[in-house]
Each structure stands twice: as C-alpha cells, then as structure tokens.
Design a protein around this nucleic acid. Structure first.
Lengths: 151, 151
DNA sequence: GCAAATTTGGTTGCATGCAATTATATTGCG
DNA sequence: CGCAATATAATTGCATGCAACCAAATTTGC
C-alpha cells in the first residue's frame, strides 16, 4: 500500500541540514572572496574589515567587547589587532583603571578609511544580482540561526 | 518638513549588507563550532567532514572535482587530503590513464563512518531550536546567494 | 586583609583558505 | 614529429580560527 503523504524521512532532514552546513560554509567563503580584492586596496583583510566596522560604530573598545560582537576569542583577535596596529589602523593601550584590559582605538588613518569602505559595499552590491528583498530574507534567517546558536 | 516615507537610505542598504556579511561569517563559524566536538569523536574536522560527504556520495573523485563541489582549491585540499590519508580515511593514487590526476577513494574505515556521521546530524538538529521550515527558508536563500556569487 | 576564584589578554600549535608559483603530464596544431 | 598551450596537483607564505595553556590583575568570601 503506497504512502501518499509521508513525513520527511531521516534522509530528507539530513540532506537539508547538509545544504545549510555546506551552504553557510560555501556562501561565507564566496562572500569573503568577493570582498578580498576590494578590501586589499584599503590594506584590509575581511576579518580585519569586520573589526573596523565594530570600531567605526564605537571606540575605544576592549578586546573582549570586540570578541563578543564578532564571536571571536583572544587567540584570533590579539594577533589580528597587532597587525592592524602595525599597519597604522588602530592603537592598543592598557586601561589605566584596570590593567587587565586593552583598549583599541582608531588612528586618524583608521577613521579616514570609513568613507572608501562605504564605496566597497556599493561595489559589492553591484557585482551580485541579489535584490534588497532577498537580502532581507537572508539577513533575517541568519539572525534567527545565530541567536539559536548563541546560547 | 518631516518625511514620512523615504526610500531606503544609503546607510540602510549598507547596514543590511553588513548584516549579511557579518551574519554569514558568524553563522558559519558558529555552526562549525557546534559540529567540532561531535566530529572530533570521529576524528574529523568540519572541512574534512564536508570532503567525506562528497566522497560518500560518489568515489573515487579527483582533487579538482572535490574542489569544484566545495569551492576549494588545491592549496587547501592537498594538505587536508594528506591528513585524511594519514588518519586512514582515504587513499590517494595517481590515475593510470592520466598521471596529472590524483584519485581519492574511501578506505573501509572511511566507509564505516557514514552511519555515525548521520547520527551527528541528528544530534546537531536537537541542539538547535530551528524548525524544518526555517531551515528550508535559509537553505533556499543560501542556494540563491551561492548561485549569484558563482559566476 | 588575604588567599582563592575570576577576568582578561597573550602564547603556542595545528588546521584551514588562498594567492602565487612551480612541476609534470597531456593536448593541439602546424 | 616538435613545441607551445593547457590542465592538474603540489608547494610556499601569510592570515585567520580556535583549543589549550599561561600570566597578570582584580574581585570575592571569609
């Protein structure tokens, strides 16, 4: 006797999960790859760009505050921030009131990159045929998934 | 005179793009982080797991075929595949009819991991409160973005 | 007050990603 | 056939991610 309306099988669910796992991985890498040559003109890598976005919003910020925002730990951020400092984008200094903290601030050079960085966002949008509505759907799904994974 | 219904401003579009760029980056890292301890029990990393998924579908496959499927190049895959070989999951051998190609096959051990890997997918699903419908919406958005970025 | 726990960065080692280059094998074309 | 063009991996060097561990400063419990 044929089943005309079975619930999703074990395999269906697994292949859907695979699509999400693989899709996130591939899409993230593809987006980073698109940004790379644009950001290279400013002397930034993609993770460095994300740190700059956080600092353009507000500064100074501690290493751990940046880490919470980007879901990265000190093992990743410390060397990245040192490279940003070496390249003249940020300054690292100990907090006088709590010597455990390191405050990250922007240099003048770091501030001036904000405008050209906006142009990069535009260039990226133009290179990808993805409507504002599709972008919104994706952003919303991602926000839901992130909050489900954050604990 | 107040504007009650303005089109999206430059900043709105940029912040939406930021949400997607950042969201993809964060979500991808968070998913990998969730899988890590589960895959560690099998002796696999997340990218290694993706390679195994490709091989469980079909084998043997050339390095470049795996690379096209996962959007990875030989600089990433060659050392990864060597680690999989060292750990006894796959075998690498030159194609007799074309010595430029390297054929990747599964070992018996590699085959036996297929069943426990399925269980991992289930465990992951249980740990995340994300409905099948939400998963489907996300998978669909990701597929659209990937095809827009693939060229 | 003070020792233990906690917080905060830093360090180390390993596994990706990827651009750029190299090495080898195959194909195409006159 | 001979040789340039192409295809395919491998190698090298640099920048993440991250677990595991360490060190210093601060807070807490008593």
């Amino acid at each position: 006797m044929p089943q005309s309306k079975a619930p999703p099988t074990y395999n269906d669910l697994m292949s859907l999960d695979r699509q999400v796992c693989f899709g996130l991985y591939a899409a993230s890498n593809l987006v980073i790859r698109q940004y790379r040559p644009l950001l290279a003109e400013l002397g930034l890598t993609f993770p460095q760009y994300l740190v700059m976005l956080v600092l353009w919003e507000s500064e100074p910020q501690t290493v751990s505050a940046i880490g919470e925002r980007l879901h990265l730990d000190s093992g990743t951020l410390t060397p990245l921030l040192k490279r940003l400092e070496t390249n003249g984008f940020v300054v690292r200094r100990r907090d006088d009131t709590d010597e455990r903290r390191v405050l990250i601030s922007l240099t003048t050079h770091g501030h001036t990159l904000r405008a050209p960085a906006r142009q990069i966002t535009e260039t990226f949008r133009e290179g990808v045929s993805f409507s504002a509505a599709e972008t919104e759907t994706l952003a919303s799904s991602l926000a839901q998934l992130i909050s489900a994974l954050e604990h």
